[in-house]
Structures are given as C-alpha cells and as structure tokens.
Design a protein around this nucleic acid. Structure first.
Lengths: 129, 129
DNA sequence: GCATTACGCTACATTATTAGTAGCGCTACA
DNA sequence: TGTAGCGCTACTAATAATGTAGCGTAATGC
C-alpha cells in the first residue's frame, strides 16, 4: 500500500492538500492508536508497542510503523527502539485534545444511553417518519 | 460491525476508556474524512457527501454515517440531510488543528523529500547500521 | 561453547472490510 | 407520466487485517 504523504495524490484530491494525506494516513486502522501509545511511551520496542495495542498483529503494526516512519512522525533508533519525533509530538498533542473531547463525549453519551433505557442494540431509525 | 462508543469495550481496553472508543471510531476508513467534509458542508445530502469524498462507495459511507449517528456526532434530518451536531462541531475543530499541523508537516516533508533526491520510492532502511 | 531470551520483522493461510456497480422504493416537480 | 433526486441496499470482486509460526540477529548467563 502506498504511503500518503503531503503532496501525494489521494483518491480525490488531485491537489495533494496536506490535510487529505494526513486524514488518509491517520485514518488507517491502528494508526491513531499506535501514535497515541508511542506519544505516551517513547521510546518503545516493537513488541512492547504490540502489547500496548492489545496484541495487534505484527503485520499491521509493521505497516503502520513503516508509514509513520516514512512520513517523519516517528523514527526507529538502534537500541532505543521506536521514538516519536518532534513532528509526532505536535501531532500527539492534538490527540490529547481528542482525549479531552472523548471524556465530555462519554458523559453525554452516558446520559443518552440511560435515556434510551438499554436500547443500545437498536439500529438508528431507518429514516422513517 | 459493532459501533465503538465510550464505555464499550474495545479490543484491549476492558476499561472502556473514552479515548479508545474514539480512536477506534475515527480510525475506521473514511471516518475522519466524512467528518471533515460534513464539518465544512453541513447540512449535506448523502449523495453530495459521497461526491465530496471522491465517489466513496455508498456501502462504507453508509456504515460510517450510521456509526457517527449512533455516537451522536452527526444526525440526519428530514429534508435537510446530514448535519453535524454540537458534539461533532467540537470534534471538527480538533480536525481543524490537524489541518494546521498538516500544513507545517507538508513544508517540512517537502524539504526532506528534496534532500532525498527523488528516493521517495525507497523503503526505510531495514534496520541496518 | 551453548542454551535462553529478546529483538525487529516476515510468511502465509484465514477472515474481515472496502470497492464498485446496479438498482430499489420513495418524493418532488414538470 | 416522465425525469430527476433522495437515502440506501444487494451483490461480487478486490484489498486489508488477523492470527500463528518462526527466521536471523544480538545480548546475557552458565
């Protein structure tokens, strides 16, 4: 799979807008999670990272790590293992905000779920009146 | 596929930490992109949204929309189409920061790519000395 | 030496997710 | 009564992730 970099053309962005590359890169499975874990545990070995992500398969982990490395967000240093770069740290601080957002979201969702009286399994209405 | 909500147990988070649910939800393909587009074009019809995302297949689009609806980030209103909720707007503003980050990233990446003299196709070193 | 442990990572078969296309049932509006 | 738009589903093919085993290497202990 090709690695989305700013300037590279994603599916619909002939313009190569950086945000599109970022969204594609970070939208891949486990990418955000790997970044989050490494942001809090740098440096970190491949295997430790794997455990932190709940025994994610080494195949995907390696894919994501390669992509993040090629885009300069993380790096691999001998003896230290994987580290987060300055670029990655600034990106990580955005994820910290996501963490804050998620907490508020959680408390609101909880209320909504309570209101729904355990109807959480229901699919949302099929657009009926 | 089950929809990750705060409180729901993701792969490795028995704790159900909100951030984990958020990372899983937003880490799915097209989720961030859909959110980004809807943040800038709300309300928006299904088909318009589809075009904005570069003719994404309706299957995934509908999956992502359903997930985002079940988690209260977006909503579907009759005659208006899809809209972003307050929850979604606050999340969207985080993505705006991602946009800002991506621009800086792009300028740094450009320098790095130039430095590399068109070796962009190369895989990163196989951990050799 | 020689087993043990850990490292980053690959191979490979299985399963899950996405892509791509066609079109349904419905509501306007002409 | 035709055309166009809507949200969305059905279906198959293509692609990506999972899960397990294990390679080649290096460091440690005996």
């Amino acid at each position: 799979m090709t690695v989305p970099k700013p300037g590279s053309k994603t599916r619909n962005s002939r313009t190569g807008r950086p945000i599109m590359a970022a969204l594609e890169l970070l939208g891949r499975k486990w990418a955000l999670r790997v970044l989050w874990e490494l942001h809090q545990n740098s440096p970190c070995s491949f295997r430790t990272l794997q455990k932190l992500c709940g025994d994610i398969s080494p195949t995907v982990l390696n894919s994501r790590l390669t992509e993040l490395r090629e885009t300069g967000i993380i790096a691999l240093r001998e003896k230290e293992g994987y580290i987060i770069t300055d670029e990655g740290i600034s990106l990580g601080s955005i994820i910290l905000q996501l963490d804050a957002w998620a907490k508020k979201w959680a408390s609101r969702m909880k209320i909504d779920l309570d209101d729904a009286h355990d109807r959480t399994k229901e699919k949302p209405g099929k657009n009926k009146k």
